[in-house]
């Protein structure tokens, strides 16, 4: 038997390395118009958050008129009740929520992945303990837990980030743990155990590389949820407070003028919604491309 006889049994040849610009799942994702819309929206918001102070026409705290004025040439979206330029405030309105969400969720995904890998691979009483703890944290509705923790931790950027990390870690643990249980049952892990590989090596070299798609999806899903929750907190008057511009807070303030100037409410509402919709549309495509189903992220 020569090696030639095997040639006919090879699967269709993979495209040559040069032709592969992007990983296959991403190329697949980009075929969906919804995913593209999502990615465009997310990029727009990230750029806006980064450069808002540079490109905004006025400072967010400068008082320019006496009280609320309608849109004009000088102030495209008018000025708010205190007389600050509304467009400039609108452009900066997502910065804190986005920053806090990114920082907190990133920490949650890292912590959650480590705990989930460990619990899922080791099993036993430790797994039981971790799972019951996540059950308990997740039994408290996210918004309430955030509100209670903010009461004790405070409202600074770092403390908000810690609160987000605490609130979102259990969900990540569950998702990663569920996938790890499935992976740990596979024979390549038996092979690693048979070789006598160390626990960290099995967790981080054998198991973790299989979770990259899921982790990316988790990061994005939790981010969109965190942005929503932080904004809701500001809307309730329990989160980010004046004079920092924030979409949730701006919606709340605009409710008093909803009868006369609904535009003041609609503008920040569009800002916030388009950010969250952008993330969710992008996640939807990303998840499908990586074969991550809704049931994977809700184990």
């Amino acid at each position: 038997m020569t090696s030639d006889t095997f040639a006919q049994f090879r699967p269709p040849a993979a495209p040559p390395a040069k032709a592969r610009r992007l990983p296959l799942p991403l190329r697949r994702a980009l075929r969906s118009p919804m995913t593209v819309i999502g990615l465009v929206l997310v990029s727009f918001h990230l750029l806006l958050a980064l450069f808002a102070p540079v490109i905004a026409p006025y400072s967010v705290s400068a008082i320019l008129t006496t009280g609320l004025t309608p849109p004009s040439g000088a102030h495209w979206l008018g000025t708010d009740q205190i007389g600050r330029d509304y467009l400039s405030r609108l452009m900066s309105g997502g910065r804190i929520a986005l920053l806090v969400s990114l920082l907190g969720v990133f920490a949650a995904v890292v912590t959650g992945a480590v705990l989930g890998l460990f619990a899922g691979y080791r099993g036993g009483w430790l797994d039981d303990l971790v799972m019951r703890l996540t059950d308990a944290v997740m039994a408290v509705p996210e918004l309430l837990l955030i509100a209670v923790l903010v009461l004790t931790f405070g409202k600074e950027i770092w403390s908000l980030s810690i609160v987000v990390a605490i609130v979102y870690t259990p969900g990540v643990v569950r998702v990663i743990r569920a996938r790890t249980v499935g992976l740990a049952a596979q024979d390549f892990i038996r092979a690693a155990e048979l070789r006598g590989e160390s626990l960290p090596r099995i967790l981080f070299r054998e198991l973790a590389p299989n979770l990259t798609g899921l982790l990316a999806v988790e990061l994005a899903i939790r981010c969109s949820s965190a942005v929503l929750k932080i904004s809701a907190l500001s809307f309730l008057g329990l989160g980010i407070s004046q004079p920092t511009p924030d979409w949730g807070l701006m919606v709340q303030e605009a409710m008093t003028v909803i009868f006369t100037d609904p535009w003041f409410l609609i503008a920040p509402a569009i800002g916030l919604s388009s950010l969250v919709i952008g993330i969710n549309f992008a996640v939807d495509g990303l998840a499908r491309a990586y074969g991550v189903s809704e049931t994977d992220t809700n184990p």
Binding site: F235, I266, S273, I279, N280
Partner: peptide, 24 residues
């Protein structure tokens, strides 16, 4: 599509839209 859209809408925004549409 519609559920993904409404899933992404903050609930206080949805409630306010309802006020604007149904009440105002």
């Amino acid at each position: 599509g519609v559920t993904l859209f409404s899933y992404s809408m903050p609930d206080f925004v949805v409630a306010n839209i309802f006020i604007i549409v149904f009440a105002l």
